[in-house]
Computed example of a mutant assay.
Amino acid sequence: MNIPKRLFLHAPNVHVGGGLNLLQVFYGVAESNIDFEQLDLRAKAGMKPGRAERHWVRPTLFSRLAAEWRLRSRVKASDTVLCFHGLVPLFPLKGQVTVFLQNRILLSSDSLKSYPIKTRVRLWGERLMLKAFTTRIDKFVVQTPSMAEQLRGFLGEQTPVVVCPFVLADVDQADVPAEKIYDFVYVASAEPHKNHQKLIAAWSLLAEQGLRPSLALTVPFDTALSFQIEELKRKWDLNVFNLGQLSSREVSALYDQSSALIYPSISESLGLPLIEANSRQLPIIAAELDYVRDIVEPVQTFDPASRTSIARAVKRHLGYGQPTQAIHGPEVFLREVMR
């Protein structure tokens, strides 16, 4: 007797940004295959109705635990479970379990001190869970070769991992070319790994040198970062415009109004804005990191930890020469010491 194979979609905590966009795209093609789903309540407005049994998960410890227990109780040996939120199940499951892992921070031993204490504790716990419960996973799916390499480095070379990138359908460009309002655009939320602080520090350095290129940001309003950006903007008279969190259509229009994408993020599983900008043939100035070269060829690169390196890359792209330091002999050094 053949038992029908059922698909369980488990996606608590997927409610904003690129993760939600990918979930919506996936759901658009997989809805008829999904038999049971657990979604984040905060994503309710963005998820269309489906035919499956649906449970909304609140962002509370009790609701998350209840969802994990419900999953354990319902999954049979013939079922497939997709953990779209990138975490291993809390309880062992009878079916085949696939984890779609998008958070590169979980695969790193880097310090988390730049994150708020609550986020720091959560990420630390998720790293421990990933290591402790890996044997419960039949397969990991990641979106780039460098992510797969990092996953194997974190969990071991025998970790079952498949590279299978997918992205949003490309949005239509404006029929009439839009006016270029901004020299650079950076589409990113306010998380510390997005590296806005170094980017703004580079813009402040450029202002010290008399250069004020325009920069459009999409940092949500009423965040500590948005206030910090406004403070530095006033202090250095920066040509920076924070537009707040935008819809997909608004982001599309913003690309059309921008001359180049700058991307200083220090950690990405894919980097959707890189793909979106590349599809529009926008020049890309980005961090010299593996995740960037997995998917695009930037016109300029920089060290994302250095405001000087970022500023120099911007100047190169804008056509400003960067004088190098003259190297002197020991006689000049002696004269300087004695002067």
Rank of each mutant, 00 (worst) to 15 (best):
R6S: 12
L7W: 04
L9M: 09
A11L: 01
P12K: 02
P12T: 06
P12Y: 14
N13F: 15
N13E: 14
G17Q: 10
G17R: 07
L20K: 08
Q24E: 05
Y27H: 13
E37D: 14
L39Y: 03
P49C: 03
W56E: 11
T60M: 10
F62M: 15
S63V: 09
R64K: 14
R70M: 08
L71T: 10
R72D: 07
R74A: 08
R74P: 06
V75T: 09
V75E: 06
K76M: 11
L82I: 12
C83V: 06
F84A: 06
P89C: 06
P89L: 03
F91D: 13
P92S: 02
T98Y: 12
F100D: 07
L101W: 03
I105D: 02
I105T: 09
L106D: 06
S114Q: 12
K118E: 13
G125K: 13
R127L: 01
L130Q: 06
F133S: 11
T135K: 15
K139C: 13
K139W: 05
V141H: 02
T144R: 01
V161D: 08
L168G: 09
L168M: 13
D170R: 13
D175T: 14
E179Y: 11
Y182E: 04
V187Y: 05
S189M: 10
P192D: 03
K194F: 05
H196D: 05
H196Q: 01
A201N: 09
A202C: 10
P213F: 00
L217K: 02
T218M: 04
P220E: 04
F221V: 13
D222R: 11
L225H: 02
S226M: 05
I229R: 03
K233N: 10
V240R: 01
L246T: 13
R249K: 15
E250V: 10
S252D: 10
A253F: 11
A253I: 07
S259L: 00
S259Y: 00
L261D: 00
Y263W: 04
L270V: 06
L274Y: 05
L282C: 06
P283N: 01
A286W: 01
Y291W: 11
I295Q: 12
I295L: 12
V299Y: 02
T301H: 01
F302C: 01
R312T: 01
G319D: 01
I327T: 15
I327L: 14
E331W: 12
R335H: 11
